[in-house]
Computed example of a mutant assay.
Amino acid sequence: MMANLFSTFDPSTNFNLSLNWMSMFLGMIIIPPMFWLIPSRLNFTWIKLISILHNEFKNLIKSNKFNGSTLLFISLFSLILFNNFLGLFPYIFTCTSHINLTLSLSLPLWLTFIMFGWMKNTTHMLAHLVPQGAPSILLPFLVIIETTSNIIRPGTLAIRLTANMIAGHLLVTLLGNSGSSLNLYWLNILIIVQILLLILESAVAIIQSYVFSILATLYSSEIN
């Protein structure tokens, strides 16, 4: 019996151990075999997806000084994507619905970009705080606004992913808990609605992992 609706996101298991966090490593167990077997449709599809992401991230970075950096963002996309998908299965903990995981992904990336930018491209980082063509009287306010927007970036990245994961799972859980009190007619409608919601959540899982990685790429491109 749930104490409240949000208890579905509690990282607790039997034997008083928080082993649910191990779910974030399930993707690493599932993925590798397809690289060791005869190429299949799944393998070709994944390679095609990686190739598309590589070209898109490379165009966003717009620099040849950081060759191979797209691998970092593709790995980030893959990690979030598999964890989002695994969270749709019953009895599997959705670790991307917790702010401590999403912030652990966004904060080190943001700190790395900021430290590298200020150490290597100090003039460029200072110029980025002042939009081109802005009136002189507004410059102090614009610097404060740009600084604030830069500081809250890791928080907005983390909260965006967490909020989208929580919202969909809460809706699915809320509708699922009401099934026991419905008659057969409304139960059939509920099942259809739940299937449609799962399809929507699958799309959200892909979109949110893409948004997270593409925004991280954009933030890295600003320091060049």
Rank of each mutant, 00 (worst) to 15 (best):
I50E: 11
P131V: 03
I31H: 09
Y210L: 01
K48A: 13
L86R: 05
L26G: 09
V143N: 08
V211R: 09
T148D: 08
F9H: 00
S221N: 07
S106E: 06
L138I: 11
G179L: 14
M1E: 15
W118F: 12
I50M: 10
T162W: 07
L215Q: 08
F57W: 06
L109A: 12
T147V: 06
L49T: 09
K120P: 01
N14F: 13
N150G: 13
P140E: 04
I214P: 08
L190P: 00
L129S: 00
G133M: 01
E146V: 03
P39T: 01
M1P: 11
T156C: 06
N59Y: 11
T70P: 00
V172N: 11
V143M: 13
H128Q: 12
L126Q: 10
P11I: 03
L19M: 10
N64V: 10
L190H: 04
Q132P: 04
N64H: 12
T45Y: 13
P39A: 05
T123P: 01
F25T: 15
I47S: 07
L200W: 14
H124V: 13
V143F: 11
T102S: 00
L215S: 08
I38L: 13
L53K: 03
S178V: 12
F89D: 06
M2K: 14
I145H: 13
F93T: 08
L196C: 10
A163E: 07
L190K: 05
P39R: 02
L139E: 14
L109D: 05
G155P: 04
A167K: 15
L157V: 01
A216M: 09
H98R: 11
H98F: 08
T112N: 10
M2A: 14
A134S: 14
P90H: 02
I61F: 12
P90Y: 01
P140V: 02
G179P: 01
A216I: 01
M28K: 06
I189V: 15
K120M: 05
N177V: 10
W186M: 14
H128T: 09
S18W: 12
L86G: 07
L190S: 02
Q208V: 02
A134M: 07
G117Y: 01
G87S: 01
N177L: 15
N224S: 08
S149K: 12
G133F: 03
S104H: 03
I207C: 10
I38H: 13
L17G: 00
L126V: 09
S40D: 10
I214L: 15
I61P: 05
L215I: 11
